[in-house]
Design a protein around this nucleic acid. Sequence first.
RNA 1: GGCCCGUUCGUCUAGGGGUUAGGACAGGAGAUUUUCAUUCUUCAAACAGGGGUUCGAUUCCCCUACGGGCUACCA
Length: 506
Amino acid sequence: MSAKKVRVRFAPSPTGGLHLGGVRTVLFNYLFAKKHGGDFVLRIEDTDQSRYVPGAEDYIMECLNWCGLIPDESPVAGGHYAPYRQSERKVIYREYAERLVMQGHAYYAFDTPEELDRNRKEIPNFQYGHAYRDTLRNSLTLSQTQVDQLLKDGEPHVIRIKMPEEETVYFDDMIRGHVSFNTGESDDKVLLKADGMPTYHLAVVVDDYLMDITHAFRGEEWLPSAPVHLLLWEYLGWKDAMPQWAHLPLILKPDGHGKLSKRDGARLGFPVYAMNWFDEKTGEMTPGFRELGFLPEAFLNLLVMLGWNDGSNDEIFSLDEMVQKFSIDRVNKGGAKFDFEKAKWFNSEWIKRSEAGRLKSEVKKILEEKGVVVTDDALLLKVIDLVKERCTLLPDFYQQSAYFFEQPKEYDLAAVKPKWTDAKTTFFEGFMTMLGNTERLAGEELEQSFKALAEEHGIKAGELMLPFRIMLVGGKFGPHVFDIAALLGKQETIARIEKALAAFSN
RNA sequence: GGCCCGUUCGUCUAGGGGUUAGGACAGGAGAUUUUCAUUCUUCAAACAGGGGUUCGAUUCCCCUACGGGCUACCA
């Protein structure tokens, strides 16, 4: 039992938006760290210069901020193990790569990408490994003087790990248990690229060691490269410091086969990114959960249920509750297909459970974006409470509440006109008079007097309710019509009846 | 192809040697709401197949099938 504090890390690559699987990995990292009183470290993997997208880091930080998954250490927050951006740690990796060469666990390779491509095309099952490494241009086949000369001349080269031909390596995964591999199956992975940047394999081991990472969570797609990492930990002499690993199940496409990808969102009509992502290189916009109207609470909730449960029938958890109840033993092994319908259900549940005050600024923003001006915040809170149970996504608040702040622009005339009569006009005139004499409007009492008046006029109340609703909101939607009138107030209700009457009777 | 991982209702899953195999989403029917939504009641819906082990297997073991991942100077 180590006395070392728990440190877990997540390292996204700034090559484009943050998708569902990415955020879920962050979430599990975060939950584990907080559960065990440790630190959640965020590192940036920007070693792929060809795919690096400027601005992606800010995007990642904003996503985490929106979700409330704030790292204890990051390029922004800093920490004792800085820098947290791999491109800024470039010099560190070379040293370790060369140490491996010296020890005979790695070697310089001078083959060009073109040569390797040709080999892959011409030789079936070509792998840069024990079977072919002796026939290629590397420090294993070249003499020491030749190698020194090439290095001195600045000949482009990479450093590759020398995988043992026949050796079994294994480890115990926190989710999957005992996993073992034969080292000869893997090729000699590049550790240090020609541009001097490390590959993931080298960087992840060096950084995890240097940053005292104790537990590492990543997607299942990394399982096959675990033997390379295992060997690196061993060769570098850090075996005892190796973190415990957990390989998370994948999030799958809802319909066909395979991992959920960015394309699936466009194809099936739902977001796969946390927030809108605009790629400057391609000019392409990928929609996000935030902009579609998801609450971060719901987003996190739906993510955590994709691969984890607390063993009870409960499905709604706040971030705090997740931290409390999270247990790595209850993470599933199998991949989960993403279901957008269920995702929306989580959001509607969270909207329903949220206090009006929590929703206020989001709703206000939605209304204002559509040109609805809200001056009365107290009214807005009451409106939110009245309509929130009818909203699934935040933008639904527009249709459900805009009419409280401005008169309907259009009426659903098709629903009233065919059945409209002069008697109904007379009734509403009488109703306006009645309202004028009323002190304050209250939903319940208003309904009583409305019905009583209808009876006096010899009209069934049912025939008047829909027209009344359309007068107030313009269409067939919204909560109880008398609750709407009560919130609108006497003056406004009368004004709307009057205006609508003109539209109905000509 | 090779290697690795996985497999309970359509989907997310609970369970675990003896259960009417439970819940949720979606779907069907009904009630309430003289809009729509909510809510409530209710129905339908699953242990991939074959061998073992066992008194007994959905649960443990093996094989097969299927699904997925990896097999880059990408992560």
